[in-house]
């Protein structure tokens, strides 16, 4: 066998591997509406945690089951229920944005993996007053009221 033949062979194998690798991406970044439209397809969705709805997690009942409501980061106000079966998500409550990896099944999003994007610590901590006001209002209002409050805001804009 000539040297050039083997080198060519190695190159071909490498190219095939690269092509498989690139074609095998198999997933895309989608919005909530798109994820709902493609049930069963593994997608990446960037969302926000809906803090007006409770995060369901009780380690004594089931240490793995966690569920919360996610809303779109764009202005569509699309939302969906997310089920994550791998326990508590660190920093979920303070997250600014979440990248969910999983698929939409029946009525909810089966999330396999989450990446939390947290706000820069130092920007947050300089506004302690504003922060506490915000949390207290949203805590006092029942879930329905907060959403109407935000609708009103939208309308006045």
């Amino acid at each position: 066998m000539k040297r050039i033949h083997i080198i060519l062979l190695v190159f071909i194998a490498g190219t095939i591997a690269l092509l498989i690798g690139l074609m095998d991406t198999g997933s895309t970044y989608e919005t909530i509406a798109e994820a709902k439209a493609k049930p069963g397809k593994f997608v990446h969705v960037a969302v926000r945690l809906d803090k007006s709805k409770p995060v369901e997690y009780d380690a004594k009942k089931d240490a793995n089951y966690l569920s919360f409501e996610a809303i779109a980061i764009d202005s569509s106000r699309e939302s969906m229920k997310v089920v994550y079966r791998n326990g508590e998500i660190p920093n979920l409550m303070i997250s600014e944005r979440l990248v969910l990896k999983g698929k939409f099944v029946n009525d909810h999003f089966e999330c396999k993996d989450v990446q939390t994007k947290c706000p820069s610590k130092y920007k947050e901590s300089m506004k302690p007053t504003e922060k506490s006001i915000q949390t207290s209002t949203s805590a006092n209002l029942p879930a329905g009221q907060t959403s109407t409050a935000s609708t009103n805001l939208e309308a006045t804009k």
Binding site: G21, G26, T28, F42, H44, K112
Partner: peptide, 11 residues
């Protein structure tokens, strides 16, 4: 809008 596949490590 390509994203890593479901089994990212296996890929």
């Amino acid at each position: 809008k390509l994203a890593p596949p479901e089994k990212a490590e296996f890929a």
